[in-house]
Design a protein around this nucleic acid. Sequence first.
DNA 1: TAGATTGTTAATCGATTAACAATC
DNA 2: TAGATTGTTAATCGATTAACAATC
Lengths: 209, 209
Amino acid sequence: MKNPKIPLTVVRRLPLYLRSLTECKSSGSMTVSSQELGEALDLNPAQIRKDLAFFGEFGRKGIGYEVQYLINKIEHILKLDRNLPVALVGAGHLGTALCQYSQNRHNTVEIQYVFDASPLKIGSQICDLRVRPVGEMEDCIRQNDVKMAIIAVPAEHAQTVVEQLVASGITAVLNFAPVSLRVPDKVHVRNADFTTELLSLAYYAASDE
Amino acid sequence: MKNPKIPLTVVRRLPLYLRSLTECKSSGSMTVSSQELGEALDLNPAQIRKDLAFFGEFGRKGIGYEVQYLINKIEHILKLDRNLPVALVGAGHLGTALCQYSQNRHNTVEIQYVFDASPLKIGSQICDLRVRPVGEMEDCIRQNDVKMAIIAVPAEHAQTVVEQLVASGITAVLNFAPVSLRVPDKVHVRNADFTTELLSLAYYAASDE
DNA sequence: TAGATTGTTAATCGATTAACAATC
DNA sequence: TAGATTGTTAATCGATTAACAATC
């Protein structure tokens, strides 16, 4: 598939670089150094250079990185230079929020299909998208060659949903349900469960004990 | 403040243990081994034992861990045995979704105060909570001794908001805005920006190139 | 040439996993 | 006693940071 030697932690930082580069661009800079990027993102400059070196040589010694050029390169690496439709499963408040974000920033990564099991939701509109019955999900994903999905359903349904998604050809999943999903090795699942995050943050809530 | 030697990565796993233990409990098990917990969460048993060992000796050799006892211990470590009010800033769709989750599972960590800058939102109700004007935020947080906050405002306002929160005594922040926030060392910020996550996931969307 | 900054190697640091004595 | 499983030390692995030659 893809070069599997790239550490996950490196891939996860690429969008941060992209974000910072976009800021540089809009502030008019033509070039930027790893030093400057590091300051903006609170990261070690050596780390940034090393991360980028996994994918090629994008900078010039003594000068730094040409902003637009590096943006193009990272967008290509992340596949953001092509259209990537995303399927959203679960049309609750969270799903709606995700939909809004997805459309606000007109990315190539965009939620294009929304599914829900509830007859109350099916047929309604979320951010201009029609909510479809889960029964149509597998066919729809297959026919439109969708590879990315977001799970925003209750915990008890998440495993069933992910199995359907994987069976339909989904390879990358962002999971908001608070469960550890079982998937084949080839499928990438990223957990984004904020109740879990919030509980762990409680540890850092100062108290007088 | 707190024993600062505990790695962040360990603290972040504690809620997972809690989740798995709760399942054990409801399935009727009185004890559980690190082996079993590891299988349920897809973690190495040695890691689980080592994580717990940071906080004490909670198991019995040859037996495992008493489920309810370990639940109590972890809840205490995470401060979940006392009431922890959370302030939510930003009453959009995301904020509403967060509010719902926070109330559904009647945790001690619960969103109790909601703030927004928009006159359209102020005064309205979100999950039984009145949306307050940001102008009241600092006083409200101070007076009610709130230590945890969630930022669900647009990126351009996040830094201003976090500075107000820190000034009012907040020590733990869950940030949904796609920006790197500047805060004093004593304040813990956890980023939960899913657009960034989604972009990095695109790397794993299989393609034919 | 002097100053800046990359790409890369080596050093450090931290986290995960294996192994095992202790003991239920 | 034999089998299971902890707590903990040692070994491994991986990620971050420092250092520096190459070079713009």
